[in-house]
Design a binder for these strands. Structure first.
Lengths: 252, 252
DNA sequence: ACCTGAACACCGTTCAAGT
DNA sequence: ACCTGAACACCGTTCAAGT
């Protein structure tokens, strides 16, 4: 019952017996203090386990064992919460040291990283889309893309607009993926998406297409349904990077 | 008070006096019958005048002078309503007769048309993003893009994946624009967006950037903030089309 | 067959009152 | 300074009852 008391720990490290007194960490006294940190942590955990739609000011408050009003002491509103979440995620981006010889592959790597971050944090893409990116985390992505492109000889104007285009595309992809996931496991939340079920649904959809109205979609149904999200993303990254190289001089 | 009675109209057409009895159109008897048509019309009008967020099953019902439950007789749910709305909009796409010589310009034209449709129907991009496109209207865009690309010698696989990429990018642009509009005139809804105010806010944002953390964003602030939505869209369309041409053979 | 009032289980946000 | 109960003005959807 000694809530909040100092904690001791002892263990054997080889021949030595170690005994430390841990600093008085808040270890759940009746009520742990609410902080932005804790709110964002909990929001991310909730989003990861139950999806974006499961995160509301009220459900979040309940997860923190308090009432919705308490959150407004630390977070201006729902919008700012979303912003804090995607900021936290964007900080994990690792921008490579620009290498002029390999700018194209480096740029693709950053795009892949962005996609992976959205993927690892299901629902985060929806939070990213719902806002105009203004926070430090999102700015780092832009700074990194600029560095890679400029080092690679891309004109600054083309590189600058590419930051926009890339961010928009990647978040849209993440958003779309989250829709499939949400739809597919609306019954069993928190599960991995069942790619086979999704594919089956897709194929079904294409088979029902009236050929008189959509001759080409019918003819090229195999191409339209070919590949998974990975393949399509690689294609898109390829198009974006090749396109950037192709038009760079026009926007000098 | 003769609700629902036949209507007569007479007028002078040159020397002739014309008198017609109009067919008994439902002209608002106590209650006009609810139809999908009327529901979608009203939803689009509401969205255009007050934005996507102003359209709810309840507000829509009120605009139709009924209760929310009545809508469910004609529309499965909110999701289907969104689908019907963007289907209606997508039908307005005019696919050009494919001309192999000018496939690139034709493809850009279709992208511009898509962007313009979202722009003309504020909020529709948000409805488009919120769903996996499955309806006839959206399929027409894909059919048209395939026709133009294949005529232009693009490999079917690259063309097929381009349909995805293009739709995703254009709807994301529309979505982002709707966020600015909504933010900017949250006080005065239904107004044209104030581009100067938006630009001023953007510039302000860039000026506050710490140069130690973001040397390139600071150095290239003019490029980062250059151009309006139109310029950026033209750049993106250029990148996408040039990129498609560049990678087409790789995805044969 | 179509419509509807009332209810259910939710939202975000505010504010006065508490510690 | 921080927290909170209660309230306000909303959501989407269902269902039994009405015409």
């Amino acid at each position: 019952m000694s809530a909040g008391g100092d904690r001791e720990r002892t263990w054997q490290a080889g021949p030595v017996r170690v005994r430390v007194t841990l600093p008085r960490r808040e270890e759940r006294p009746p009520k742990e203090r609410l902080t932005r940190e804790r709110i964002v942590d909990t929001a991310m955990a909730l989003m990861a386990s139950k999806g974006y739609d499961a995160v509301s000011m009220r459900s979040l408050a309940k997860a923190l064992d308090t009432g919705p009003a308490s959150l407004y002491q630390h977070v201006a509103n729902r919008d700012e919460l979303d912003q804090l979440v995607i900021d936290r995620i964007a900080r994990q981006l690792e921008i490579p040291e620009p290498d002029p010889e390999h700018w194209a592959e480096q740029l693709k790597d950053v795009l892949r990283q962005m996609r992976d971050l959205y993927h690892e944090h299901p629902g985060s893409a929806r939070a990213a889309m719902a806002q105009i990116p203004t926070m430090e985390g999102s700015m780092r992505a832009a700074e990194g893309i600029m560095a890679i492109c400029v080092a690679g000889g891309i004109s600054p104007q083309a590189a600058a607009w590419m930051c926009d285009l890339a961010a928009l595309y990647v978040s849209a992809v993440g958003y779309e993926e989250s829709l499939w996931v949400q739809r597919q496991n609306s019954t069993a939340p928190g599960e991995e998406p069942d790619h086979e079920a999704i594919d089956a649904e897709m194929v079904e959809l294409w088979n029902q297409l009236p050929p008189e109205l959509f001759p080409l979609l019918t003819k090229y149904a195999p191409e339209m349904t070919a590949g998974d999200g990975q393949d399509r993303f690689e294609f898109a990254a390829d198009v974006l990077v090749s396109g950037l190289a192709a038009v760079s001089e026009k926007y000098r």
